[in-house]
Each structure stands twice: as C-alpha cells, then as structure tokens.
C-alpha cells in the first residue's frame, strides 16, 4: 500500500485548566490514503473539530498536542514551528470551515484573494495566477467565473460563498483537504450541491480529505471510510458501508438507530439514554459505559481495545457481532 497522506499516531490534545487537565482528544490514530474521504462523525464535544485543528496546528492555547504524532505524507508536522506550519496550511493542506464568511476577507475581491494565495504558495507569474484563479472558480461551479473575479464576498449567496472557499482551499493544489462541517450552515438543496462538488474534486485530483460533520446522512453519502468519535476517543473506524450497515460499537449502533430517517414509520425513535460526559467528569474505563446496554464490569475499569491501526474496528470489549445484528 502507498504511504498514507495523513497519519495520526496516538494523537492526544490536552487543555490544562485550574481544575485539572482536560483531554478533548485522547489517543486517536488513523490513516487517510490518497483519494480517500474519511468522514469523522460524533456529537458536539466529541473532539472531532479539535482533532482537525490539531492537524493544521490551529489549536487555541492553552490547548496543545501533548502526545502522539501527525504525519503528512510520512513527514512529522506536529512539531513544526508556526512559520513552517503557515507554509503547510494552504499549500499542502486546504481548509474549509462551517461559516464561509470567516474564511474570506470582506475587503478584498475574491479574485485578489485567490491570486494572492496562488502567488504565495506556487512559483508562477501574476497572469498565470489569475488564469489559475479563474480556472479554480470555474471548477467549483461559479458561473461566468472571469466576470466574478472582481466581486466581493458579500455579493455572493451562502452556497456560492462556500464554493469560493473551496476554490480558495484548493487553489494551491493541496494533497489533503480538511472540511469542518462544510455544509452545516447551508440549506438542504445547496448542501447536496456542495457535497457533490467535494466528492467530484477529491476523485478528480486524487486528494485525501477529512470531512468532519455531525450529520450521519452527509457522511453516509460522501465518505469512503468513517471514524466515529465519542468523548475524545475513537469509538469505531471502518468502511462506510460497514459502519452504517453493520455497526460493531454499541454507540455507533445507537447513533445510527436514533436518526429519524432510520426508523421511518415507527412510532418511537430508538434513543441512547443520557448524554456524553463532560470532559471534566470522564468516567473510568470505557467512556460510553454509563449509557451502554452491553456494559459489564470490565467496561467500567478498562477502556476499550485500541483501534485505528490493528484489525479491530470498534473500541469495545463486547462488540455487536454480525449474526446478532441480523437476529
């Protein structure tokens, strides 16, 4: 197998506070291969956005990577200086966030922003940069791209703005795209457009992507593989069809079953009792055990088996077996 584009090795993020150290990301490992979309799902506070921010070196102090490694194409980047990291961001890692307005400078035309980014990261002439910018806008489906180069961000609708952000993220031809809730602020019809766009661009460019979202439907339609996070830890990781179709971790199972779409026509939705623990009140053992129907004594003491690199998909001592699910 080729070298993965992004490898996380036991990535751990700590936030020291005066009440003790919080651990929003705990021992997370995974690989993303070229051309692969890894969907990262979890509920709010599961650590999925924090993981993305750790990869691109944008953790807000006092949060910091306290253990583990981030490897971009085999090269360790978690110990890069701020200046080195700035060259990585935009050039080798493209980023798309939830709110397109925060990623765009309201005072510059989108043409200026695109050309600037291209000139900063690639060794091309000014006119070449402009040409590439137009080509980039074209590629993300902005109609009459040449004429819109002089437009300001506020002159675009929400969906078009997100397209511009994607063009901006991709203009320096990065090998990895990190998209954090890219469609959450958009309407359903526009969301479908953006998802289709992201999928097409990843396929065409052979780019690896990490898609962070809370929306199971978006993940199911977009991702090749899925990582399910719970309370900062990786609960389960595997191919999308298996995660959605035959979940092994009881949390994944509960998450899938509680979406209204899954139980269409039933009077009641399946629900997981309780809520995710706060970071400062983490239970011992498996973080999910207080809500888990399968929990036994072992789960209250030992965190689940490690996942991400070994064969085991789910961090669970008593995973759901396939014959069980069928019954």
């Amino acid at each position: 197998m080729d070298m993965p584009v992004l490898s996380l090795r036991n990535l751990t993020v700590d936030i020291p506070t005066r009440h003790g150290t919080l651990r929003p990301v705990d021992d997370v490992s995974w690989d993303i291969a070229a051309g692969e979309i890894l969907g990262v799902v979890g509920e709010s506070g599961a650590g999925k956005s924090m993981t993305g921010n750790a990869v691109i070196g944008l953790l807000d102090p006092p949060a910091h990577i306290s253990a583990g490694e981030v490897l971009l194409e085999g090269e360790r980047i978690d110990n890069y200086t701020l200046a080195q990291m700035r060259r990585v961001r935009g050039k080798r890692i493209g980023m798309v966030f939830q709110d397109p307005l925060t990623s765009l400078n309201p005072l510059l035309t989108i043409g200026e922003q695109l050309s600037e980014t291209i000139l900063r990261h690639l060794d091309v002439s000014r006119s070449e940069a402009d040409a590439r910018a137009i080509q980039g806008l074209d590629e993300v489906g902005i109609p009459s791209a040449r004429n819109r180069m002089g437009a300001y961000p506020h002159e675009f609708s929400g969906g078009m703005r997100q397209r511009v952000v994607i063009a901006l993220a991709l203009c320096a031809e990065p090998t990895l795209l990190i998209a954090d809730e890219p469609t959450t602020a958009l309407d359903v019809s526009v969301q479908a457009q953006i998802i289709a766009l992201l999928k097409r661009l990843c396929r065409e460019r052979g780019m690896a992507a990490m898609l962070v979202t809370h929306d199971m439907g978006v993940i199911a339609e977009t991702a090749d593989r899925v990582a399910v996070m719970y309370a900062g830890r990786l609960a389960e990781i595997g191919p999308v069809s298996q995660i959605v179709g035959q979940p092994r971790h009881p949390y994944t199972d509960g998450l899938m079953a509680s979406t209204p779409a899954a139980s269409a026509g039933q009077a009641r939705l399946r629900q997981i009792p309780g809520a995710m623990p706060r970071l400062n009140r983490m239970p011992d053992g498996c973080a999910f055990h207080p809500r888990c129907p399968r929990a036994q004594d072992k789960c209250r003491v030992n965190p689940g088996p490690k996942v991400g690199t070994a064969d085991e998909r789910a961090a669970c001592w008593f995973p759901i077996e396939q014959d069980e699910a069928a019954a």
């Binding site: 936030i15 709010s44 506070g45 809730e181 959450t184 602020a185 809370h214 706060r278 400062n280």
Partner: peptide
C-alpha cells in the same frame, strides 16, 4: 439574506462540555 427574520441557525454547536464548570 442575513436579515431574514427566520434565517435558521443550524449547527449551533455548544461548547459547554469544554468548560471546566464544576457542578457544585
């Protein structure tokens, strides 16, 4: 569009679990 009275604010992701608020 932003001045629409019912612009839906989806994706409100509360960070309350991040706060080290002690439950006294």
């Amino acid at each position: 569009m932003s001045n629409l009275p019912d612009a839906t604010r989806q994706g409100v992701e509360p960070l309350d679990r991040m706060e080290p608020a002690e439950v006294v």
